[in-house]
């Protein structure tokens, strides 16, 4: 399988590294408008560099395009790839509004190519285990759930995150991970109520989702947390509770006595190592779905639904009213 990657930032490089070690996959091109950035990635994995996306689509011979650019550019690049007959693997969120997301799904279907969206949390072993145990009945019927996803503000490194029109803010960019996970675990969502405070230092949101089943979840997402990136979840059911917390699952602690670059008296690096990264497992599932003509663990329609809920949360935070979901009852369709 010949794969090309557009966007050589943080996630683009994660994609590149994952494909580079994936059996039967060749990276035939990497693209970025920043020449120095694309050159670094190209040199690292030994793939041709492109600064023109059009050139890469026409010349690289790729069958699949992996899109890891700013969220507001997803639609345009996905549609160009689809119209060139390439399968599309796109980072989350699928788009920043439902019309764009629907157009991406429809264009891919029309051009007979697949569309996948990188809701990677489903591939994190701790979250996959929760889903599995919930389905096994380990905690009975789901009642009340919590999720938390907090870290530094990415806008300080990449300013487009500060602009809701480009990133969608903390709900569309960060909370959407847990929105997809909790919908996967808890089923369809009936209503959303959300509150948000956003500034350049802090983008904090809390959203309460009521499921069709009657269960309820509170999702918290924060940019500008003064601490390490941390994720956590708790699902309480009629027969038990499952909890996960990345700050408590560091299976390796390395402490060095020498002073750190920041001048501290010691360096502390907690890690939770695994043999395969969740990103690798996710991208391999997408590639194998193309090879085998089957659904992936997360579909484009799932990504559409997650966006719908995220937009409802954003609207609720703006208007102060609860927003009902599911007026659109279109059945999930294979893309």
């Amino acid at each position: 399988m010949r794969v090309a990657i557009v966007g050589c930032g943080g996630l683009g490089n994660v994609h590149a590294s994952s494909y580079a070690e994936m059996p039967g996959v060749t990276v035939v091109g990497v693209c970025d408008i920043e020449e120095e950035q694309v050159r670094r990635t190209a040199d690292r994995i030994g793939a041709p560099a492109y600064v023109s996306y059009r050139d890469m689509l026409e010349q690289s011979g790729c069958e699949v395009v992996s899109i890891a650019v700013q969220s507001y550019l997803h639609k345009q690049l996905a549609i160009e790839a689809a119209e060139a007959g390439k399968h599309v693997i796109c980072e989350k969120p699928i788009a920043l509004n439902l019309a764009d997301a629907r157009e991406m799904i429809d264009t891919c279907r029309k051009n007979n190519v697949r569309l996948f969206v990188g809701h990677v949390v489903r591939y994190f072993p701790e979250y996959a285990q929760i889903k599995h145990q919930l389905e096994n009945g380990t905690i009975g019927r789901l009642g009340v759930a919590h999720t938390s996803r907090i870290g530094g503000h990415p806008g300080h490194a990449r300013a487009w995150y500060f602009d809701d029109a480009c990133s969608g803010g903390v709900i569309l960019d960060l909370m959407i991970h847990d929105i997809d996970f909790i919908r996967w675990a808890g089923g369809e969502v009936r209503s959303v109520y959300s509150q948000r405070a956003a500034s350049r230092e802090l983008d904090y949101a809390t959203a309460t989702l009521v499921f069709e089943s009657g269960a309820v979840a509170n999702l918290k997402a924060q940019w500008g947390y003064p601490g390490p990136f941390t994720t956590a979840a708790e699902l309480a059911g009629s027969g038990g509770v499952i909890r996960t917390d990345s700050s408590r699952s560091a299976s390796l602690q390395i402490r060095k006595t020498e002073a750190s670059a920041s001048g501290g008296p010691f360096v502390e690096v907690p890690q939770s190592p695994g043999y395969e990264s969740p990103y690798y497992i996710e991208l391999l599932d997408f590639i194998n779905s193309i090879r085998e003509g089957r659904e992936a663990l997360v579909t484009a329609e799932d990504a559409y639904k997650a966006l719908e809920i995220a937009l409802a949360a954003t609207e609720s935070a703006r208007t102060g009213k609860a927003v009902m979901i599911g007026q659109d009852t279109r059945k999930a369709e294979s893309v």
Binding site: I139, V144, H146, Q195, A197, T206, N218, A236, G240, V241
Partner: peptide, 22 residues
């Protein structure tokens, strides 16, 4: 139970009140 509040000061809060411990 899940309850959200907004204060006159603009501060907001949310609280889980559930008897959810098995």
């Amino acid at each position: 139970g899940m309850i959200h509040v907004r204060f006159a000061s603009g501060v907001f809060g949310v609280l889980d009140t559930s008897w959810s411990r098995p």
